[in-house]
Write a protein that binds this DNA or RNA. Structure first.
Lengths: 214, 214
DNA sequence: CGGTAATCTAGAACAAGTTTCAGACTTGAT
DNA sequence: ATCAAGTCTGAAACTTGTTCTAGATTACCG
């Protein structure tokens, strides 16, 4: 029946999506080439520089195939972000933050991530814009990014069993993180400002953990 | 020299933009028609339904003229949002929030705004997506929206002389507000969830005000 | 091997945002 | 009233995301 297997869609991780039929090696390679080209183009030029025709050409794939793998430009860029986030998470695991309190560690972690983004501001632009511009059709993928981000923050807090209040705080931290990134990317906030925002929101953690009812 | 220019009639608010050459009455009328058409189309269909050709036709204006007034679709939608925000602010002034603490009043105000958006979810979609998708070329306009939002929140807090810490909290509240809206609009968070996020972030205000010097 | 269904390719075609242009129209000044 | 300069209009053109099609390839089953 099938030839080169079924329609691909998300991650390469086996322990992730439920309905992701496995990919041929050649397909996996194509997918990887596409994501690489996407990140490459995004790296200089940002969101606008990632043009589907160029991605296709650059990754040696027909336009139609590109769209079979990633049903829209936003899907593509969100997938690119998933990729980068995984990479970041691995890096962070190797060198956990050293702060005293949970709030400090989270702030340190986010600032580290922020510095990584500063090294590739155009790539950051492409990914973050895609993420916030995504409509309902990309919800699953965006949600996956969100879960990954949550995991990173919880890791930094060093909690195995967060309370609902703490999870609420994490949600707000994520909101702030995304929105602060946007203001920075669009030139409306300085790097210093972003740091302040992050540090401010991280104080919410103190509010829930040490003294409060847990 | 100029033609339909120079009549210093009304931009309504005299204390707003610095370098906005005043508009003729006919121009003011055009501008208003355009914004009305924009809101109308956004009202059903959201971001995608606001098509520049339709806006032009619907507001009895040539496409080129539309682009003279609003240099891009995002500019147009952000301007639409400015419009709506002013309206909201006026409404809110009439019925200030009744909560005991500043945090309660801010949360109440934002929830009220949220309910207003729920009545026109498509319009909300168009405006918020435009806002977060805006690139640097729209910074001034987006900044104006941000200032207006800040003003609304500060009003709710009832402060005439906010401390830097309080301003920081307000910034984070705004971040959360925008990002929470996005998650709601893209179907990744429920209304209840948004309420929780808002209430959570508003606790930051308690952190700055009651104990410290006011 | 041969068959066949799914995949891939190349390229045209379509949609909506944006730009451009020639000509008609308005406005304020002389 | 006339004129110069800025505005508006209508329409075509251009760009880039997205869809579609016909035919060549590929993977797997028997």
């Amino acid at each position: 029946m099938p030839a080169e297997a079924k329609v691909p869609s998300s991650t390469a991780r086996p322990a992730a999506q439920p309905a992701t039929p496995p990919l041929t090696e050649r397909q996996e390679a194509r997918r990887r080439r596409i994501l690489h080209a996407s990140a490459q183009l995004a790296g200089r030029g940002g969101f606008d520089a990632v043009q589907m025709r160029e991605v296709a050409e650059s990754s040696q794939v027909a336009l139609g195939t590109l769209y079979r793998y990633f049903p829209s430009k936003v899907h593509l860029l969100v997938a690119t972000m998933q990729d980068q986030l995984e990479h970041l998470h691995r890096t962070l695991r190797k060198k956990p933050p050293a702060g005293e309190t949970a709030a400090e560690r989270v702030a340190e972690t986010l600032m580290r991530a922020f510095r990584a983004l500063q090294r590739e501001p155009h790539l950051a632009d492409a990914m973050v814009r895609a993420l916030t511009f995504a409509d309902r059709s990309v919800s699953p993928e965006v949600d996956q990014v969100s879960r990954q981000t949550t995991a990173i923050i919880l890791d930094a807090m060093g909690l195995e069993d967060p309370t609902p209040e703490q999870l609420a705080a994490v949600r707000v931290i994520e909101h702030t993180w995304h929105s602060a990134l946007i203001t920075w990317l669009s030139g409306r906030a300085s790097i210093a400002q972003v740091r302040i925002d992050i540090e401010t929101v991280c104080r919410l953690i103190d509010l829930t953990d040490p003294a409060g009812r847990a």
